[in-house]
């Protein structure tokens, strides 16, 4: 599904990704771990198409299509979803209105009519139940005054509504207490299928107890330096990242 080869990217002339390779197939869950500043969020933003980042080398393909050619919204229409590490506030725009707009704009791009209100209502009911989201929450301004945990839960709610092919969760676990973590992870697991894929970016093993990855990658200094199975995450948890850095020299 996603194929990244020798990806190099910079921001303000500063190189961040320095020849990164990763391949993700449908039905798989990949975890990307790594120390602060390693370039994890940069990778997520580059896949999603944030313009501030300049891709200076390599390729990103999604189902054989060159993502670099596409605007961020077109990537979204093709099924890329990013759960942001720091979701932004949009005052005065309710969660409902926002998600309605997102769904209908995506449908429009595919030449479809707006989703009928009753279908959307049904879907909102289902997905908000799945994520144990209070109805009141849906009427609030997007992310305005939300707690850290509410923001993250809202990201996953949007993911559930948009049903992406490739979901990238950038530190979705940070800010979540243990109950919320379980709810969110449970939601992600329910949405998983053989046709979609998830990339989980995290610092901590604890999320991976719930969302069990098929592969774990260590990102360091703009490159994937080690790949393993779920046990690698446990090892990282126990030993930290230093041993990997040492292995590299």
């Amino acid at each position: 599904m996603l194929k990244i080869e020798n990806l190099e990217a910079e921001i303000d002339g500063k190189a961040i990704l320095k020849g990164l390779n990763i391949e993700v197939n449908a039905g798989e869950v990949h975890a990307i771990m790594g120390p602060n500043g390693a370039g994890k969020s940069t990778l997520a933003n580059v896949i999603a198409g944030k313009e501030e980042y300049e891709v200076t080398g390599g390729n990103i393909e999604l189902n054989g299509e060159d993502l670099n050619e596409l605007a961020p919204e077109e990537r979204a229409h093709n099924g890329v979803f990013l759960s942001f590490q720091y979701p932004v506030e949009i005052p005065g725009v309710s969660v409902t209105n926002f998600i309605k707009t997102a769904i209908n704009e995506t449908r429009k791009a595919k030449g479809l009519e707006d989703m009928p209100a009753k279908d959307m209502l049904k879907m909102i009911r289902e997905k908000s139940e799945l994520l144990e989201i209070d109805r009141k929450f849906l009427g609030r301004s997007l992310n305005e005054g939300f707690s850290g945990g509410e923001k993250k839960r809202n990201e996953i709610f949007q993911m559930a509504m948009l049903e992406p092919k490739l979901a990238i969760l950038d530190e979705t676990d940070s800010g979540l207490d243990i109950d919320a973590l379980r709810i969110v992870a449970n939601g992600v697991n329910k949405l998983k299928s053989k046709d979609n894929a998830v990339i989980v970016i995290t610092h901590y093993q604890r999320l991976l107890d719930y969302i069990v990855p098929d592969f774990v990658h260590v990102l360091h200094d703009g490159k994937i330096v080690k790949t393993g199975d779920a046990s690698l995450a446990l090892e990282l948890e126990a030993k930290g990242y230093d041993w990997i850095k040492q292995e590299l020299v």
Partner: peptide, 17 residues
């Protein structure tokens, strides 16, 4: 960018904001 990422183009995003 947040709106774009959700499939909302810039013009529509501005209208929304």
């Amino acid at each position: 960018f947040y709106c774009n990422q959700r499939g909302i183009d810039t013009e529509k995003a501005i209208a929304l904001i």
